[in-house]
Nucleic acid binder design. Sequence first.
DNA 1: TATCTAATTAGATATTTTTCTAAATAATAT
DNA 2: ATATTATTTAGAAAAATATCTAATTAGATA
Lengths: 94, 94
Amino acid sequence: MGFAETFKALSDPVRREILMLLKEKPLSAGEIGSHFEMTGATISYHLNILKKADLVTEEREKNFIFYDLNVSVVEEVMLWLSDLRGGDGDEKRA
Amino acid sequence: MGFAETFKALSDPVRREILMLLKEKPLSAGEIGSHFEMTGATISYHLNILKKADLVTEEREKNFIFYDLNVSVVEEVMLWLSDLRGGDGDEKRA
DNA sequence: TATCTAATTAGATATTTTTCTAAATAATAT
DNA sequence: ATATTATTTAGAAAAATATCTAATTAGATA
C-alpha cells in the first residue's frame, strides 16, 4: 500500500485539516469544500490524493459522495513511527 | 514547533530512510551519505530539513558532525495521529 | 428526455521541491 | 601557516505539487 503515498498525503496542511474534519463524521465533497477558501476542483484534487493513499473511503448517496476517514491506515502509520521510535510501542510499561 | 514542517520532512523517502538509519545509532553526514547515490550537498539539504523539523539533532565531534534521531518529536507525531484516529490512543484496553 | 445539482477531469500556470556542480567554511593535522 | 578532510552554502535546472477556470460526467428529478 506504500508509506510514500501515505506520508505524502499527510504532508499537506489542507489534507490534514480535511482528515480532522472527517474524524467527526463522514462529509460530502461539498461540505468539505465549504470549510476552505478554494474551488471545488482543488478540493477534489486533494480528496483524490487522500483516496489514493487509502486514508479516506468514499461512498455515493443520492447525488452526493460522502468521504470518511479510514482509521486503519492511520494506525499503520502509527506503527511505522512506533518502529522508528524503537522499543515495543508500549514503553511506559517496559 | 509545527506539524507542517514535521510532516513535510517525513514525506520524503530519502529522509525517512535517513531516520531509519539513525534509529540504530548516530551517524556522521558522510556515513549517511554513503548509503545513498547522491552528492553530499543533497544529503546536507535533507539533513537540514530534518533538523529544522527537529527530527534530528546534530553534534560536532572532531572533524565530523554526528546526527541523531530525536525520538520526542516522533512521539508528538504519533500523538497527532492518535488524536486523528480518535479514542484515547490505547484502544485495546478500552 | 431535458435539466439541475454535485462532483470530477482537463489543461494551464505559479510555486515548491529535489538535485546537481562549484565555491565556501570549519576544524584538524602537518 | 598550509594543506587536508568533512560538511555546508549558493546558484541553477529539472521535476513535482497546488491551484485556478472551463468543460465534462453521474445521478436525480421534473
